[in-house]
Amino acid sequence: MKPAPFEYHRAYTPKEVTELLLELGEDAKILAGGQSLVPMMNFRLARPTALVDINPVSGLDYIRRDGDVLRVGALTRHRSVELSTEPDVHNGFSVLPGAARWIGHFPIRSRGTVGGSIAHADPTAEWCLLARLYDAEIVVLGEHGTRTVPSDEWFTGFLTTAALPGELVLETRFRRPRRHGTLLEYARRRGDFAIAAVAVAFDITDNRCHDVSMVLGGVANEPLRVPEAEAYLEGAEPGERAWAEAARLAAEAVTPGTGPDDGDHGYRRHLVGTLARRALAEAQAGPAGPRPRGGAS
């Protein structure tokens, strides 16, 4: 479990990062928190010829509210989001601090970064789910300057994104703040990658659901939006009946072949149904932190 030989470079500005990446070629990789990349290198599943360490780059560690947009810098550690008490974060994006608590274990949260997670694009990763939930835009810097990629175009498959060679994620812009939102996961052990995860966000006005988003994690190669459930809930009266039907639609979105091949798609489908129902009910009850192990019934 030792990595293959690689070069190590340190960069101090975003521009330097992109220049180094272009110079070093396609087999160079960015090192941010290293919580996924380094284990993969130790197993020799990833064999970058060079690493560009972006930890010395200043100005990428921030959480900023800009009107209806919450901008999270790429080098923001999971732990910073988790500990955030800013009204700017909690007002409309309260899912984020709660969701951060589901991420791995304390050392992982202290070191891992939001930008790294978005770039790694694990289909169970909390930030990837939330990027889809909040129709985030990913701001990347490349050879020809910055560009903005909507999250529905960003995730292009298992651990793959629309990032071009040499590009660096600068920022994730979460949009469409909503009052109600929750992310729930289930794993057999606390802190593990979710077997399945469900995130929901919506507003309630005049006892009707509006602006509903629902995203599933761990059931497809990328975070999966559930337009059927969203459409059903739009204008529906919040409550157990609606939640149950939306959960049924969510479970139906879990089809064989859409998840990791562990031969247990039936179980995952049941789990998604449960989590969706619970997430909707919990979100209705108000902004809340995560509950361990799928929450209470």
Binding site: R188, Y267, H270, L271, T274, R278, R293, G294, S297
Partner: peptide
């Protein structure tokens, strides 16, 4: 046992 998730602890 959580009948919703099959979780046992």
């Amino acid at each position: 046992v959580d009948p919703g998730t099959g979780d046992a602890r």
